[in-house]
Design a binder for these strands. Structure first.
Length: 152
DNA sequence: GCCAACGTTGGC
DNA sequence: GCCAACGTTGGC
């Protein structure tokens, strides 16, 4: 799951008082559908920093709720406001995400070095999806091989 | 700041 | 339903 660290970094997510952060602002149907249809409470999440000096995996997290309407879509003052959405028929959903650990930064160039990860959606040319599924093999490779144990 | 890639919008 | 125009994302 991509997050802009200027908005919500892994440190911000770890410090969240509620113990989790609502993943607000997803305005893409495919990404929404992943949250709605594919995610289960307890699923592992790679916390990815995007649109920043060093894009890459910055931490580990877990899905902490099922999907529910993103309140920012109803907030006229929010940059995520969607006038076409109504509480009766909400367009946009989110899940709560519980940060588990900050890891060393595994940058994009490094991710691209590993043939084991070459099919990752996030590494595909022109990929803009902010939420993408990770296979079990990719997850294991990243968590077991790339991230030192003591960091998580 | 540039720009490739891609999603959305809206006229027809 | 097509597709040009436009807007956004995100790495560089």
């Amino acid at each position: 799951m991509k997050s802009e660290p200027d908005e919500t970094s892994i440190d911000d997510a770890l410090a969240a008082k509620a113990g989790s952060v609502p993943w607000t602002g997803v305005r893409n149907y495919q990404a929404r559908n992943f949250m709605r249809d594919e995610m289960r409470v307890g699923d592992g999440v790679l916390f990815y920093h995007s649109s920043c000096a060093e894009p890459g995996i910055a931490g580990l997290a877990e899905v902490h709720s099922t999907s529910y309407p993103d309140p920012t879509q109803f907030d006229r003052k929010s940059p995520y406001y969607d006038p076409k959405s109504t509480p009766e028929n909400p367009r946009w959903l989110l899940v709560d995400v519980q940060a588990k650990a900050k890891t060393r930064l595994v940058g994009l160039p490094e991710l691209r070095e590993h043939p084991e990860l070459s099919d990752m959606i996030i590494l595909r040319r022109g990929n803009r999806l902010s939420i993408t599924p990770v296979t079990t093999a990719e997850w294991k490779f990243i968590v077991q091989k790339l991230i030192p144990k003591k960091t998580h």
